[in-house]
């Protein structure tokens, strides 16, 4: 950080930006391999939206930091320990049920989060959130529809969907975690009390699962660490792939 730069805002923006970046990276792995052409296109749309959002958050983070780092420096030249995304978004695509469950849990949180961030005391945060919220409304509608369709589809799809929502459940707690930094940010009016969003999130998930004929997972133990840079082993591989060219040809312009 340069003298006088705002470390809390910088970290806050990394958390928002890295979620979008890593999830987009995961979704883009589907491009060309979707279960049906229309889904290939729709998933790529979501990946593109999230990538656009990541660029807005990370560019702003770079400005706030004031050390001349731009979106690409932050995306391609940080190591895993410096990434601030939640563990949920780095989980593997596995099958379409896992991809759908991951997206649904995230979208349901993301949409609530953005509607709060739209009221941020920081004008840039509010602007980015407002733009992103429009896109995420559609993401949530889409992932909810797929949870319902796969849950209430065939026996096989219901089984796969239930397995996926169960397996990813322990990664949802981190979305509502409040640490020291979140509390400072909240005091400054940057963003909300994340823990206060949990109930509305839970209601939405419960309603959707009921329609999908899925059981709500019962586990109470939650994984954590991503927001503090302690990730799953998967993130290293995501970054190795994503950062390859920037690492192999230092300083080159592309």
């Amino acid at each position: 950080m340069s003298a006088g730069s705002d470390n809390i805002l910088f970290e806050y923006l990394l958390r928002l930006g890295d979620n979008c970046l890593i999830l987009s990276q995961r979704l883009s792995e589907w491009c060309g391999h979707g279960p049906v052409l229309e889904e290939d296109i729709a998933l790529t749309n979501v990946a593109l939206d999230l990538l656009g959002q990541a660029r807005l958050w990370l560019s702003y983070a770079g400005e706030v930091e004031g050390r001349g780092r731009g979106e690409d420096d932050l995306a391609f030249l940080r190591d895993a320990r410096e990434f601030r995304n939640v563990l949920l978004v780095e989980q593997s695509n596995a099958d379409y049920a896992f991809t759908t469950a991951r997206q649904f849990y995230f979208d349901a949180w993301h949409s609530l989060a953005l509607s709060e961030l739209m009221r941020s005391a920081d004008v840039r945060v509010a602007e980015i959130a407002e733009k992103a919220a429009k896109e995420v409304t559609y993401h949530l509608q889409r992932s909810s529809e797929w949870v319902i369709r796969l849950g209430d589809g065939t026996e096989e799809s219901r089984h796969r969907m239930q397995t996926a929502v169960d397996a990813l459940w322990s990664y949802t707690g981190e979305l509502f975690e409040m640490d020291e930094m979140d509390r400072s940010a909240r005091e400054r009016g940057l963003g909300p009390d994340w823990s206060a969003l949990r109930e509305r999130w839970m209601q939405y998930v419960a309603r959707t699962f009921a329609e999908a004929t899925l059981e709500i997972p019962q586990g109470t133990w939650m994984q954590r660490g991503g927001r503090h840079g302690v990730h799953s082993e998967r993130l290293g591989y995501i970054l190795a792939e994503m950062q390859f060219l920037q690492r192999a040809y230092p300083g080159a312009k592309w």
């Binding site: 979707g34 279960p35 049906v36 889904e39 099958d95 379409y96 369709r149 796969l150 589809g153 065939t154 096989e156 799809s157 796969r160």
Partner: peptide
């Protein structure tokens, strides 16, 4: 092939 169950479910 891997998308078959998704199309069937839909």
């Amino acid at each position: 092939r891997q998308g078959a169950w998704v199309r069937d479910a839909a």
